[in-house]
Design a protein around this nucleic acid. Structure first.
Lengths: 242, 242
DNA sequence: GGTCGCGCGAATGGATCCAATCCTAATGAT
DNA sequence: ATCATTAGGATTGGATCCATTCGCGCGACC
């Protein structure tokens, strides 16, 4: 009778696996905007949400703290970090260099199929963003990752795991829903994003490492500038609103 | 009577400050080789060493785990990671790109005084390594950091805090005493290291960002190759020894 | 009426507790 | 003698406990 239920409830995760899982889930909540920037994170609430005690939750929060996604104030709990515009610019300058390296390395390893795959993904993302902006498509969380996928794929094709990790470490600092909304809401950003991706793909297809790196670097710097501007705007309106 | 002792024993660190401090101390033990590669880390032992309970120690260990310096095996404790040669090469390729960026950026911000300071530091480090190798100087832990100081200073002069953090994240993955010993023990590495530093400084002094970046990139890749070779050699001798 | 102070509730954070797991070594069977 | 088995000790890891601290509101005093 209840024997099969063991398969559905496999041995509970413990140790590092559990803590990493908790950190992932909390990070996702922040990345999707479910927990907004500046919001408080209560240990007891998270613990009961995930059905564990506060101990592993605290360890997960520490991980998010060292990555910079949240800030832990002494005896006053954790809040989701509010990125400063200058920090966004600095971070994206570093990310630009890393992704440029990834693109340059990917030139020697990428296959025709992968390029085609990226082209399709890029166009699908564009169409979806367009549909979203005109309100003809619902918000599908899976598709919000389209933009990330493009960059993640190139990083993984580069064949350097450390490189992917370094890029990821930087990305995990900034909630993703903000960048995604920029593409949906602003037609110029959307078009630029699409075309910059196309240019990167063309350079990859041409086997031109130099150009692929340059295009990627420019693309990431541009995206960072847009993001920094958004945070600038946000801070000024928030202060006015109070 | 015992009132003054309060000043000597100020309010005990708590929270993030305590955990970060513990992580620093454990990391130092590994970096200096006091805890060698592959050794086990016992929570109870560390806790009693530092006069705290196992709870904050575990949080510190998790931080070191996410940085990759240690590996935590389920229910079997933590061991200091043994870097794989290919991982060293990958990591140093990324580090090379980041430090190249730092050098390029530093060109526009570095002062004559800072260049002179780096020149002196570089020469002092060379003299010290030479004296160490001939046995005429004792092992002074403070001076072992000379090499790091060179790179850390340039990263900080670059003015991009994120960049410094990214470089640091990679460096914290590999015990430092190994790299230091390479310079002390092998005269060719020592000379190359000194001269590559000189070339970087010359490019900085000339205000040539392009060349500074190229020299730095080459220097870091070279150092990574030496380190990777050392780990290759080590793994083969260790297996033979068993 | 405003401000300072006291106290209570809530939340954090280190210490402790206990179940589960792993390692080791001693015992027993082949 | 070798190998499988199994108790016992040691260690990890989540849950719980309790001291400390923060925040907020009520009340007293100026």
């Amino acid at each position: 009778m209840t024997i099969e239920s063991d398969a559905l409830a496999p041995t509970r995760k413990t140790g590092a696996a559990l803590v990493d899982d908790l950190a992932d889930r909390i990070r996702n909540r922040i990345m999707t905007g479910e927990i907004p920037i500046g919001a408080q994170l209560r240990q007891a609430e998270l613990a009961s949400d995930f059905g564990v005690s506060r101990t592993p939750v605290r360890e997960a929060l520490r991980q998010l703290q060292t990555s910079g996604l949240i800030e832990v104030l002494p005896n006053r709990g954790a809040v989701v970090s509010v990125p400063a515009p200058w920090d966004v610019r600095e971070a994206y300058e570093v990310r630009a260099e890393l992704e440029a390296l990834a693109a340059a390395r990917a030139v020697r390893r990428i296959t025709r199929d992968q390029i085609e795959q990226l082209r399709v993904a890029n166009r699908e993302m564009y169409d979806y963003s367009l549909a979203r902006s005109t309100g003809t498509a619902p918000d599908q969380p899976d598709h919000r990752r389209g933009n990330d996928l493009f960059h993640t794929l190139i990083a993984s094709i580069s064949g350097n795991a450390r490189l992917g990790k370094a890029i990821n470490d930087i990305n995990e600092t900034f909630p993703r829903n903000v960048s995604a909304q920029l593409i949906v809401n602003d037609s110029r950003h959307r078009d630029e994003n699409f075309q910059e991706h196309e240019r990167i793909l063309q350079a990859l297809a041409d086997g031109d490492a130099e150009r692929a790196a340059a295009e990627m670097r420019q693309h990431v710097v541009d995206a960072g500038e847009q993001l920094a501007r958004w945070y600038e705007l946000r801070s000024s309106t928030v202060f006015r609103g109070e």
